[in-house]
Write a protein that binds this DNA or RNA. Structure first.
Lengths: 229, 229
DNA sequence: TTTATTAATGTTGATTTTACACTTACTAAA
DNA sequence: TTTAGTAAGTGTAAAATCAACATTAATAAA
């Protein structure tokens, strides 16, 4: 039995995470100011190297947790980037993952310690290496994924208003949606629970809060569906 | 300046190709009987290792060319597979690509020399490692991609009949389609040229041959469109 | 010239999507 | 307590798309 493929070249394998969050200002990503060479002081995605005894999904989870303290986050592998000199230090192939997090839940302390910051998609700074490309790619994927599975909810707090949901979808798709049509489409999916509670922040009248109907939601996650917005 | 990230582990990076072809019997994939250890004699996807001075896309192109002699083939990166023991010999991460080829064009000689064979999707043999999973993944992606871009055409000869196109889509989606509705949808895309020539193989009446309207086709490739079949 | 075979073609009813504006519920200020 | 102001909540009709369906046309072989 062989114990190596002797002639093949080994490379470093990195994981970079595009972390999406959402608040009243719109869709955001979490970036970090590098405090090591190369490109010290520039903005970058959060990332790290794959360990010998670790699968890629776990590396992505570990990296996300290291920088935000979060567990149980929706993540999805995106793409492997392999340009020869994408990292000038050493030949490194990077596999990108995107994550959707509820922006209220992350650990502010940790983020500060790592010099990480949230940036609106529109005015994010220029990033190192091919990270700009990764972000663009992630946004495209998020748009598509949103239209086929109801993952957008991952970005909202547990209780949310219809307005918040609408604005989230508008931010992801970057287009205006018709309020009435949106609401009736969402309702027809039957994945929400309407609570008796109202959110009084936004108006005198107050607007009803919703949570997910977990069971229905899981079904929809399983069987692809189409959400034409 | 650093010249290595000293603490990180290096790994082998492989590329595995799911090569789709299409003929009158339906959708097929090209498999190879391994003539090296481990798993010598078992069926596998064609693959190889990434070289130090090569990007992943080029490795996929090289591998496809090595085994089939083909150039200029539609390929798309699918996913990175990283289970710890997916390859028992050495820690190997594999990035899969799928390719669509016109089954008539490949080099028969080469395929024979490599002990490669075409198998119908339905009755393909069990494959080594996680290659079965890769194939399933590729079929899902092909179905989706087909519905959003007209890539299916890559699988047909230059001149083809409406029936061939219909059967291709039926094979990809594995469901029956209504002939009249299919034809009018395809026509409404305006990406085909109807030739004066007829194919007389299939009937006494003969059926018109079509080619692509390259310009329109490129436009559609650019701006995603939806083809609801 | 008849027969057999596959190609080519359009219409209608059902469903889905889009566009669009007024009333309701509540709070705060007068 | 009345009034004014604000966002929430709600339905319909026209347009577009989708799905189901059967007959005629062209040709080669008998």
């Amino acid at each position: 039995m062989l114990n190596s493929y002797s002639s093949a070249d080994k490379v470093l394998l990195a994981v970079d995470c595009i972390i999406f969050g959402f608040d009243h200002q719109g869709l955001k990503i979490l970036l970090i100011k590098r405090d090591f060479e190369p490109e010290r002081g520039k903005w970058s995605l959060i990332g790290g190297f794959l360990k010998r005894d670790e699968i890629l999904d776990d590396a992505a989870i570990r990296i996300l947790n290291t920088y935000t303290g979060l567990h149980d986050i929706y993540m999805e592998q995106l793409h492997a980037y392999s340009e020869i000199d994408r990292d000038p230090v050493d030949r490194t192939i990077s596999v990108s993952y995107y994550a959707l997090i509820n922006i209220e839940n992350h650990n502010e302390e940790m983020i500060k310690n790592y010099h990480a910051e949230w940036f609106s998609i529109a005015d994010a700074p220029n990033l190192i290496f091919d990270h700009n490309e990764m972000v663009q790619h992630a946004i495209r994927r998020l748009r598509y994924r949103t239209s086929i599975k109801p993952i957008g909810f991952e970005l909202l707090p547990e209780k949310f208003t219809m307005r918040q949901l609408l604005e989230l979808y508008e931010a992801i798709l970057s287009k205006e949606l018709d309020k009435r049509n949106f609401i009736s489409k969402i309702n027809s999916l039957e994945i929400l629970n309407k609570l008796d509670e109202k959110d009084m922040q936004s108006s005198r009248k107050g607007s009803y809060l919703y949570t997910f109907n977990k069971e229905k939601y899981e079904e929809k996650l399983l069987n692809d569906f189409v959400l034409n917005l």
